[in-house]
Amino acid sequence: MSRNNLGGIVQQKGTRHLMMRTLLFLTLGVFCLYYLIPLIVMIATSLKSLEEIRAGSLLSLPQDVTFDAWAKAWSSACVGVRCDGLKPFFWNSVAMVVPAVTISTILGALNGYALTKWRFPGADIIFALILFGAFIPFQVILLPMARTLGVLGLAGTIPGLVLVHVIYGLAFTTLFFRNFFIGVSSGIIQAAQIDGAGFFGIFFRIVLPMSLPAVVVTVIWQYTQICNDFLFGIAFTVGDSNPVTVALNNVVNTSTGVKEYNVDMAAAIIAALPTLAVYVIAGAYFVRGLSAGAVKG
């Protein structure tokens, strides 16, 4: 059972108890506010005009709400010498994230399936080596990877960045699926073998549909990792092929005259929106997927 009803548990009553509850919620409220203030400031600033920002204080709410800064950030802010806003770079990110997440998830699922259900000599060693990849710091692979991409002719391109993310993500996706499949009864695989299905038949028709929780966790994990990546983006792409995270940095650093805080804030929120959206939409599945297997049913 994923959700137990705790409403029926007998609780203490009385003034002392009431005071403690009030104190508890007050403390929680203060911490909530503390965490939310940066976001509030960002949204408020992005909705102000430059004059208002100069005149008012950082924490004041906007008097005249205007979306000019958002429009500018999206389509006309200068990123380096190019002044088309974040739009083209946002699509770069999408063109990178979708294939990178899809490919790394499918390969991770296949790896996990083969490592647990079609055991071969040395499977544990191979898994240990794959797992080792999860602990390699990003910086370590920058130079060898740059060389590899150069040899492959993918340097400075989006497909090149997709390849980097797929390779780097495999360690995590394999780990997620391996841990999920280890809990799947081998009897199911044996039954499918007797039923006449082969390696891929069992994978696509039996195992993959069962692994929806693992797929959700892996997709969210990979999606946020790749969306938020800055280092690989700045190291392996140039100019027009930059992902949105790199472009955001360039928007903020491009200084021609006045510092447009409202545009910077709007741009930052735009760059963060895809990951925020995923947490809002699929957050519940994420938690459920992570705890799947911990409790049966």
Binding site: G187, I188, Q190, A191, Q193, P209
Partner: peptide, 18 residues
């Protein structure tokens, strides 16, 4: 197994859950 013309019933039933 598929070509032995056998059928098997497992302890865990091993039904395909999806």
């Amino acid at each position: 197994p598929r070509d032995r013309n056998i059928a098997m019933v497992f302890q865990s039933y091993a039904l395909y859950p999806t």
